[in-house]
Design a protein around this nucleic acid. Structure first.
Length: 876
RNA sequence: GCCGGUGUGGCGGAAUUGGUAGACGCACGGGACUCAAAAUCCCGCGACCGCAAGGUUGUGUCAGUUCGACUCUGACCACCGGCACCA
C-alpha cells in the first residue's frame, strides 16, 4: 500500500442508504414490466398482517426474498417482487375495542407506517402493484368467486360447531378461549351449532395429495405435513343394524355406520362408540337424564382437537344395542368423548384387543376384550391373557370363524366381501381432510354475498350488485358482530321476489383473502376482471418465502383455490408455488419475575444484564434495580413475553444493511434465529471492515491496470480463493439458499485480501478484481453499501445493473492437493500430492508418511482405501 | 394425544453425496497502539494428559451397520412448530 497519508471517509450508513434508495426510486428500478422475450422470475414473500410495526420475523422473511430477487435480477431474469397487506382480521377488532377507533382507520394507519419501514430496509419491491385485502376492489372478487362456487355446488351451507361465550353472546376464536373460558368474560365456553358456509375442498383431496409429488422444490417436511393432513386412508365402511332397543329409541329401522382401516379385526368388536353429537346419543339421551347430562358435558368445553385428544377418555352406555353384521351378536353402544363427530361417521367400532384407545376405554369400564389377531412370530397369541396392552400390529386372524388364518390384506378382503354380500359394508377411501368452513361471525372481513328473504330463503347477491361493501366506520364492542346493528347495511331487497330482505352478516375467513393474492399481483390494476392474461406470464410464483407456521393451512387453501380457478377457466395452472422456502422463527431471551400474587412479570432483554455468578455461569439482573431476574431461555419474540426487538431502532442506528446482514448470517433461513446484540455488532463491524478495505485500496495508489498473464504464486493463491468463493456463493445463494455460509465465505475472502501484501501494480490488479467480485457477491445481501462501493472502485454505473459474475475456470486450477491419511479411521498425517497424481502414487505417498508408519508399526496392512482427492485410510 | 422438526465448544452456527468435527462470527484471554479509554490491528481459544512433538476423548442418550458415522438404522429423552375461528 502507499505510504502516503490518506484519509478514508467514515462509513455513514444513513447517508449511504438514503443515496442508494434515491437512485432506485429515481430510476424506477423495481418496476416490473411484462416482457415475453425475457425469462421471468416471480419472487414472493408472504404478505404481512398490518399489525402496527414490522417485527424481526418480517425483516427476516423479506430480506430472504430480496436477496433471492436481487440475485435473480443480476442473473438476467425479469424479476417481479410485489407487496401487499393481509388487512382483514381479528387484531383490528381487538385494537378497535381497546382504543375505540374503527378497524379501518387503525389498519390504514398501520399500513402507511409499515410501508415506510419496508422502504427503509431497501427491499426491491414494485410498489405499483400494492394491494390490501380490505379494499372493495380486492374483496369483490372473493364474493364473485364465492357465487361461482355456489352455482357449481362447491360452496354449500350446513351447521358447524363454534365456541360460544354465553355472557358476551358471541362466537369466540380458538385463541380467545383460555383454559375453557372466554378471554374477556371468563365465562365457561360452550359449543354451539350454527349454520355456516363450507367450501368443498374434499372434492380435491385426491388431487391435492397426488400433486404433492410434483412439488419437488418444496421442503420434504411441508409435503409430509400436507399429506398427513389430507390423511387418505383405505378401509371399510361397516353398517351395524339397530336392534329393537335402538329401533324403539329412534323410531326407525336404522344402521349405525362406522369406518375402519382394520376390518380384519371385525370379529373382535365388543362395543360401538359414538360422538356426543351423534343421532343415537341424542335419541338415547331423551329418556335418560344422566346420559343427557353427560352428553351436555361433552358438548361443553373447547372445540380444539388438541384438547379433545388429550382429555381423559370418558364414556357412558346409551342403553341401546346394535347387531354385529357377521355374527348377529348384540353390541352395546356407548357415548365416548374421544370420538369426533367431524371425522368419518362420528361413530367407531371398538376392538379393545387391537386398538390402544379402545383398550384403555374397555379396561376402564370393564368392557369385554376379545383377541382376534396373533402376531406372525407367535410372540403374541390369544392364549396370553389377561392382556396388558393392545396388540395393534398387523398379524394373522384367529377366533374369527371362517376368516381364521388370514394375513392383514386377505382378511380385510374376505371380510369386506362377506359384508358386501349382505349389503352391510363396502370398501371405501376416507380422508382426514374436512371441508373448509369459511363463515366467521365477525365484522372485519369480506361480507358473504347472500341475502336472506322470508319467502325465498338464502338468495345469492346478483353479480351486478357486487361488491357488497363493508361499512368502514363500525366500532366493535366485543358482544357479537356489530354488523347486526347496522340497519343501513342489513336492509336490502330480495333479488328474487323484490320484497324486503336482510343481508348475511357473517364474513369470510381471512384465509380466503390470502388464497389468491399472488395471482392478483400480476394484474392488480384490473377493475373489470379478477385475473387477466398477465397471470399467464408471471405465474407460477418461482420462489415463495414464508413462515413454517403456514406449512399446512394457507398453502393447502392456496393450492385448492388455484385449482378451483383453473376449473372455472380463469387460470391455466395447477400449482401456484413452484419453489417454497419456509423460514424459521426469530427468538429472543425471556426474563421474568414471579410477583407475590403469583403473577409473572416479563422484562425486555434490553432492561436485563447478564453477569458472572462466580460459579462459572451467569445470572441475569434487572438494570434498573440491580436485583436478579429469572431466565426463561429462548422463545419466539412476542408481546406477551415482552421480548420483542424493534427493527426500526436497529435501522435508525446501525442501518438497514446491518439488519439485513445479521438476519442472513446468524442462522440458515429454515432454522430458528436467536437474537443477539453482540451478533449485530459483529455484522456492523464486517461492513466497516469492507468499507475500509475498499477505500484503503483505492486510496493506496492511482489507476489499476489489467491482470497480468503470468501471476506469481501468491497472486495465484489469492485469485484461486476469489474464484472459489464466487463459485461457492453462487451455489449457496442460487441453489442451496444458505446465505449464512455464503457470507462466511465472503468474510474469509476479506480476511485473505487484508492479509495480502500489495507491493506491485500486479498485486494491485489482483486485489482490485478481488474487491470488485467481493462487492458484487455481497450486493444482493447488503445492497446499499455495495451501491456506493461499486462507484468507489471506479465504476460509473449502478451495481444493480451489473450481471452476476462467473468464476474463471483458469483461476480455479491448483497444481497440488493435500490428502489426509488415516490409520484405522484416525487421522495420522497429511501428504501433498500433485492434483493429477495416480491412485498408486497417492497410496505410496500416504504409506511413506512418518507418523503413518509409526502407527502401522510393521503390522500387516489389510486394506488401503483411497478416496480420490480427499483421503487415504490404511486398515491394519 | 396426533403430525412435522431440532439437538454439535462458553454462545450462534459450519461440515453440500458416509470421508480431516468445530469453517465463519460472537464472547473470553493475551499482546500492540493510546496519558487513558473506546475504536482498530495481531495472537490464542472443545475437554483431558503433555515443556513440546504428540496422544486420548468428544456431535442429546443407549444400541447397531461400516475400513470410516454429526451424517444411515432401531429404541429412548428434551425442546420447538401445527392441529382446522390467530395470522
Amino acid at each position: 500500500m502507499s505510504d502516503q497519508p490518506h484519509t478514508i471517509p467514515e462509513y455513514d450508513p444513513q447517508a449511504v442508504e438514503a443515496e442508494a434508495r434515491r437512485w432506485w426510486t429515481d430510476h424506477e428500478s423495481f418496476r416490473a414490466r411484462e416482457d415475453p422475450a425475457r425469462e421471468k422470475f416471480y419472487c414472493l414473500s408472504m404478505f404481512p398482517y398490518p399489525s402496527g410495526r414490522l417485527h424481526m420475523g418480517h425483516v427476516r422473511n423479506y430480506t430472504i426474498g430480496d436477496v433471492i430477487a436481487r440475485h435473480q435480477r443480476m442473473l438476467g431474469r425479469n424479476v417481479l417482487q410485489p407487496m401487499g397487506w393481509d388487512a382483514f382480521g381479528l387484531p383490528a377488532e381487538n385494537a378497535a375495542m381497546a382504543r375505540g377507533v374503527a378497524p379501518a382507520a387503525w389498519t390504514w394507519d398501520n399500513i402507511a407506517y409499515m410501508r415506510r419501514q419496508l422502504q427503509s430496509l431497501g427491499f426491491g419491491i414494485d410498489w405499483s402493484r400494492e394491494l390490501a385485502t380490505c379494499q372493495p376492489q380486492y374483496y369483490r372478487w372473493n364474493q364473485w368467486l364465492f357465487l361461482r362456487l355456489l352455482e357449481k355446488g362447491l360452496v354449500y351451507q350446513t351447521t358447524g360447531t363454534v365456541n360460544w361465550d354465553p355472557l358476551d353472546q358471541t362466537v369466540l376464536a380458538n385463541e380467545q378461549v383460555i383454559d375453557g373460558r372466554g378471554w374477556r368474560t371468563g365465562a365457561l365456553v360452550e359449543k354451539r351449532e350454527i349454520p355456516m358456509y363450507y367450501m368443498r375442498i374434499t372434492a380435491y383431496a385426491d388431487e391435492l395429495l397426488e400433486a404433492l409429488d410434483t412439488l419437488t422444490e418444496w421442503p420434504e417436511r411441508v409435503r409430509l405435513m400436507q399429506a398427513n393432513w389430507i390423511g387418505r386412508s383405505e378401509g371399510v365402511e361397516i353398517a351395524f343394524p339397530y336392534d329393537a332397543t335402538a329401533r324403539e329409541a329412534t323410531g326407525a329401522d336404522g344402521l349405525l355406520k362406522v369406518f375402519t382401516t382394520r376390518a380384519d379385526t371385525l370379529l373382535g368388536a365388543t362395543y360401538c362408540a359414538v360422538a356426543a353429537e351423534h343421532p343415537l346419543a341424542t335419541a338415547a339421551a331423551r329418556s335418560d337424564a344422566k346420559l343427557a347430562a353427560f352428553v351436555d358435558e361433552c358438548k361443553r368445553g373447547s372445540v380444539m382437537e388438541a384438547d379433545v385428544a388429550t382429555a381423559e377418555k370418558r364414556g357412558m352406555p346409551t342403553g341401546l344395542y346394535v347387531l354385529h353384521p357377521l355374527t348377529g351378536a348384540r353390541l352395546p353402544v356407548w357415548v365416548a368423548n374421544y370420538v369426533l363427530m367431524g371425522y368419518g361417521e362420528g361413530a367407531v367400532m371398538a376392538v379393545p384387543a387391537h386398538d390402544e384407545r379402545d383398550f384403555e376405554f374397555a379396561t376402564k369400564y370393564g368392557l369385554p376384550i376379545r383377541c382376534v389377531i396373533r402376531s406372525t412370530t407367535g410372540a403374541y397369541t390369544d392364549t396370553i391373557a389377561p392382556w396388558a396392552a393392545a396388540y395393534a400390529e398387523h398379524g394373522i386372524t384367529v377366533n374369527s370363524g371362517a376368516f381364521d388364518g388370514l394375513g392383514f390384506q386377505a382378511a380385510v378382503d374376505a371380510i369386506a366381501g362377506a359384508l358386501e354380500a349382505k349389503s352391510l359394508g363396502r370398501k371405501r377411501v376416507q380422508f382426514r381432510l374436512r371441508d373448509w368452513g369459511i363463515s366467521r361471525q365477525r365484522y372485519w372481513g369480506t361480507p358473504i354475498p347472500i341475502i336472506h328473504c322470508a319467502s325465498c330463503g338464502a338468495v345469492p347477491v346478483p353479480e351486478d350488485q357486487l361488491p357488497v361493501v363493508l361499512p368502514e366506520d363500525c366500532v366493535p364492542d366485543g358482544s357479537g358482530n356489530p354488523l347486526r346493528k347496522r340497519e343501513d347495511f342489513l336492509r336490502c331487497t330480495c333479488p328474487k321476489c323484490g320484497k324486503p330482505g336482510r343481508r348475511e352478516t357473517d364474513t369470510m375467513d381471512t384465509f380466503v383473502d390470502s388464497s389468491w393474492y399472488f395471482l392478483r399481483f400480476a394484474c392488480a390494476d384490473n377493475g373489470q376482471a379478477m385475473v387477466d392474461e398477465r397471470v399467464r406470464y408471471w405465474l407460477p410464483v418461482d420462489q415463495y418465502i414464508g413462515g413454517i407456521e403456514h406449512a399446512i393451512l394457507h398453502l393447502l387453501y392456496s393450492r385448492f383455490w388455484t385449482r378451483v380457478m383453473r376449473d372455472l377457466g380463469l387460470v391455466s395452472l395447477d400449482e401456484p408455488f413452484a419453489r417454497l422456502l419456509t423460514q424459521g422463527m426469530v427468538l429472543n431471551g425471556i426474563y421474568f419475575r414471579k410477583t407475590e400474587t403469583g403473577r409473572i412479570a416479563y422484562f425486555n432483554p434490553t432492561e436485563v444484564e447478564e453477569r458472572e455468578d462466580g460459579a462459572g455461569g451467569t445470572r441475569a439482573f434487572l438494570v434498573t434495580d440491580g436485583e436478579p431476574v429469572e431466565s426463561g431461555g429462548m422463545g419466539t419474540m412476542s408481546k406477551s413475553k415482552n421480548n420483542g426487538v424493534d427493527p426500526q431502532v436497529l435501522v435508525d442506528t446501525l442501518g438497514a444493511d446491518t439488519a439485513r446482514l445479521f438476519t442472513m448470517f446468524t442462522a440458515p433461513p429454515e432454522q430458528t434465529l436467536e437474537w443477539s446484540d453482540e451478533g449485530v455488532q459483529g455484522a456492523a463491524r464486517f461492513l466497516k471492515r469492507t468499507w475500509k478495505a475498499v477505500h484503503g485500496h483505492v486510496a493506496g495508489g492511482g489507476a489499476t491496470g489489467p491482470l497480468a498473464t503470468d501471476l506469481n504464486d501468491g497472486q495465484k493463491t489469492l485469485r484461486r480463493q476469489v474464484h472459489q468463493t464466487l463459485a461457492k456463493v453462487s451455489d449457496d445463494i442460487g441453489r442451496r439458499r444458505t446465505f449464512n455460509t455464503a457470507i462466511a465465505a465472503v468474510m474469509e475472502l476479506l480476511n485473505a485480501v487484508n492479509r495480502f501484501e500489495v507491493a506491485t501494480a500486479g498485486d494491485r490488479a489482483v486485489v482490485q478484481e478481488a474487491l470488485e467480485l467481493l462487492v458484487l457477491m455481497l450486493s444482493p445481501i447488503v445492497p446499499h453499501i455495495c451501491h456506493r462501493l461499486w462507484n468507489v472502485l471506479g465504476h460509473p454505473g449502478a451495481i444493480i445493473d451489473v450481471s452476476w459474475p462467473q468464476p474463471d475456470p483458469d483461476a480455479l486450477v491448483a497444481e497440488t492437493r493435500e490428502i489426509v491419511v488415516q490409520v484405522n479411521g484416525k487421522v495420522r498425517g497429511r501428504v501433498t500430492v500433485a492434483t493429477n497424481a495416480a491412485e498408486a502414487e497417492v497410496r505410496a505417498a500416504a504409506l511413506a508418511d512418518g507418523n503413518v508408519q509409526r502407527f502401522v508399526g510393521g503390522q500387516p496392512v489389510r486394506k488401503v482405501i483411497v478416496v480420490p482427492g480427499k483421503l487415504v485410510n490404511v486398515v491394519v
